[in-house]
Nucleic acid binder design. Structure first.
Lengths: 343, 343
DNA sequence: TTGTACGCGTTATCAA
DNA sequence: TTGATAACGCGTACAA
């Protein structure tokens, strides 16, 4: 067992120079009250001795860790990783570090991770909720103690705090209207978990577009799932196997849209987009790799991440955390590609 | 400005019950020396008062944070996110928390993140190196103080520590041999940064397979890049635009292979796999979404992550960290799909 | 410009 | 079975 934990502290550096620990502490952070030559001397010695600051001790003393926690469902979704990149960019620019964990859409994991973030006293938190989550008590420690908490994308309106979202209703309305304008008559929907506000809004937008164009919504054309690729496949199998079949589908994400397309691809009586239209959501990279290329909705994921981080940081540093929580809504674009071009 | 930082401590709980803080501390962690009824009483009061442990203070005192840091290039690569899932699974099972950051393949970011992990005294570290990294001094604090450090996938042999890798030479050899057996005569290679051992080994395996089959390697058939989709496209443009053209390519990852295929797709004189073969590496989900489906190499990413975490955890808890660093090599499989089926 | 003394919240040690 | 005390490493009010 070798020498473990023989970390060098400011005391060691102070001792080596016959000055006080206070002087070392101040010199290392360029405090104005320390002389130029002393600073130089201290920094040189600290480097020579291999001193590394202990953020744990500093955090305990200052009650500030210079970290923000990010909890997402899964990091391997293109939308999420862009969101995270946006968060990191802003946070790092402000000398904050970002720690990421994933809930894998499990409520239990979400609760545990949030607790770990609180126990480690991150200065702020950005969350995209798990599919499963229906209770929100685990955010109480953050709320009670006024730690900045921002929800992004997968939000809940049961907690009063800042939210970063896109206009899911309007996006779904646009997507569905586009299919109608292309001449599709009976449009189905691959829907997500309805306790997630965003998926409910996508369903609502879809329904509203149908009604606006005089089409009667049919519950039998809607397939609810976790929107995985497999579930897209399953949805296609079910919807296209019924007697009342859709001739187009609006999927609540690209992943399930691709699964849907793959099932349809192997049926001889379907050809996308000629007698079957597909629109997805997210503009994931696969949407332009799949053939035919997938029409989809683009969000400004990176911008949303940046905004979320900005919100957290201003709340941390400012004294603005008495202000009323705000919801920031970003716009989306419909990206028309081959999969919906009937005309 | 509301009440911030009014966190409840074990002293508050102790005071409310007229016991000592020591008793509270012990009761909460089920120390054997505390009576059953006292434990019950303390836990109940802690819950009622909304006490939450402060991991910062505990970490300072115990010199142990129960966290492990993971540094990767980018979280949005399927291989990486599977690796992380494996790490998380093992870590969480052992009550450890995993904090993830990404270097975005920048040396500076890697240095900064490693420093932040050290400053926050993570108990162990798992790293997949940035493409750019050529110096390794930033790992010194971990090495000097015997903190467990494991490299995974993108490793360096300039540091003596544990490594988790796949046999890149053998995998590349298999992939290239397969193309030769399918009847392709002039095989190119999309290569990665050669300071990363893994990419060098893939190039070596490719070269060795050619030589073994009596084919003279040609430097003009090798395109070096960061292996992005765009660079795959650029590589195709260059290689297929030369007078000496390849009739097949082995790409060091799937992303660049897809870019390559997309460029070739729009050339009328090429048809994959009939007069142009393609093999990728990683078995990313896109490899079975792209058409024709991509032949590729599968790694056990999740298993590699699990093993990395196990290694770190045994080193943390055990006293085995005097033992000699080990390199664990995982096997790969060639997954034959349409893109290389000339026969 | 520099130093002394204390506290952040927890836990290890020693004593009762 | 419980308690008093010190210490983890740092930052800050106060003093010099």
């Amino acid at each position: 067992m070798k020498n473990r934990n023989k970390n060098i502290t400011i005391y060691d550096v102070a001792h080596a120079l016959s000055v006080s620990a206070t002087t070392v502490s101040r010199a290392l952070k360029d405090h104005h009250s320390i002389g130029k030559d002393t600073k130089k001397k201290v920094k040189k010695m600290a480097l020579a001795m291999g001193y590394e600051p202990n953020a744990i001790a500093s955090g305990l003393r200052k009650k500030k860790t210079h970290t923000i926690g990010v909890l997402v469902s899964q990091i391997n979704r293109p939308f999420i990783s862009s969101l995270i990149s946006g968060i990191e960019e802003v946070a790092n620019k402000n000398k904050y570090h970002v720690f990421i964990t994933q809930s894998h859409d499990s409520y239990e994991k979400e609760v545990e991770d949030i607790k770990a973030f609180y126990n480690n006293r991150v200065d702020g938190l950005i969350v995209s909720l798990a599919m499963e989550t229906k209770k929100y008590d685990h955010f109480l420690p953050f709320l009670k103690n006024n730690y900045p908490l921002v929800f992004a994308d997968r939000v809940t309106y049961e907690i009063e705090t800042d939210k970063i979202v896109v206009d899911n209703f309007e996006a779904a309305f646009k997507a569905t209207s586009h299919l109608i304008q292309q001449g599709y008559k009976r449009i189905g929907h691959l829907a997500g978990a309805q306790q997630r506000h965003m998926y409910k809004k996508r369903l609502d937008g879809y329904t509203a577009a149908l009604i606006k164009h005089g089409i009667q919504p049919e519950e039998s054309l809607i397939y609810y799932s976790n929107l995985s690729q497999q579930e897209g496949w399953n949805g296609a199998k079910l919807l296209l196997g019924q007697t009342v079949k859709p001739d187009a589908v609006f999927a609540a994400n690209d992943t399930s849209a691709v699964g849907f397309m793959q099932y349809a691809e192997q049926l001889t009586n379907y050809s996308i987009p000629h007698n079957l239209g597909v629109v997805g959501f997210n503009n994931d990279p696969i949407s332009s790799i799949v053939r035919p290329k997938l029409t989809t909705i683009n969000h400004p994921a990176m911008e949303m991440g940046k905004k979320a981080a900005e919100l957290v940081l201003t709340k941390i540093s400012g004294n603005s955390y008495t202000t009323i929580p705000q919801t920031i809504t970003f716009n989306t674009d419909l990206i028309i590609r081959e999969s919906s071009m009937k005309k």
